[in-house]
Design a protein around this nucleic acid. Sequence first.
DNA 1: CTACTATATTGCTATATGCTCATTTAGTTT
DNA 2: AAACTAAATGAGCATATAGCAATATAGTAG
Lengths: 107, 107
Amino acid sequence: MKNMTEETLDLMAGRFKILSEPMRLKILHSLHDHEMNVQQIVEVTGANQANVSKHLGIMFDAGILKRRKEGLNSFYSIADESIFKLCDLVCGGIEKNLRKSLSSLKY
Amino acid sequence: MKNMTEETLDLMAGRFKILSEPMRLKILHSLHDHEMNVQQIVEVTGANQANVSKHLGIMFDAGILKRRKEGLNSFYSIADESIFKLCDLVCGGIEKNLRKSLSSLKY
DNA sequence: CTACTATATTGCTATATGCTCATTTAGTTT
DNA sequence: AAACTAAATGAGCATATAGCAATATAGTAG
């Protein structure tokens, strides 16, 4: 963590940016333990097809998702499981904050 | 990780969003092991004062930074060290991706 | 070849936000 | 009180992008 070039910072920020959309997190969550085709993801998330397809494309390009094509279908799955560690850590931070807000309410 | 309400997703996304700005990462990095006042952060980052102040405010509100006021100065420091774990994880992901790109170039 | 289906892509609009400049606020000094 | 300084805030501009509708692409079936 000594040298942090602008380029590294941009890469890191870009990666965080990908996770900064609720819909993408929702998609990731729904892919947690099974692959799905686009249509299924559309149903689960409630977003429209074009939108889902774009989000999937973004996460695929970023190496977060894998894609397996079979006939007309594209099946997506998690390529980088470390994503979920990130989510857990973030959830921990949120919980900690809420706890703090809560305890400051008590006085 | 079973129930993921829209609200939880929004909170998580919001937290990731805060880290999705290179300038904020730069500030966090420069605060890694010592507190600094705004002026010092302005010098280190090269951004202008208003901009730095806003970024600091955002991270303070999010509970990522602590603030200590002393006379005219505001000293900021890291309130939530888990941020750096997030950064490390993200760096790992980036490295993995680069390695993959590199190896696919070799053929 | 034609009709159909699943994804991907394009063009567009609306919204969010980073950045800058200018100003305000709050504390200090003389 | 007036002058000065550090930090915070407000206004406006420019850019990025999520979402939607329409269309294109590619595979399948008849």
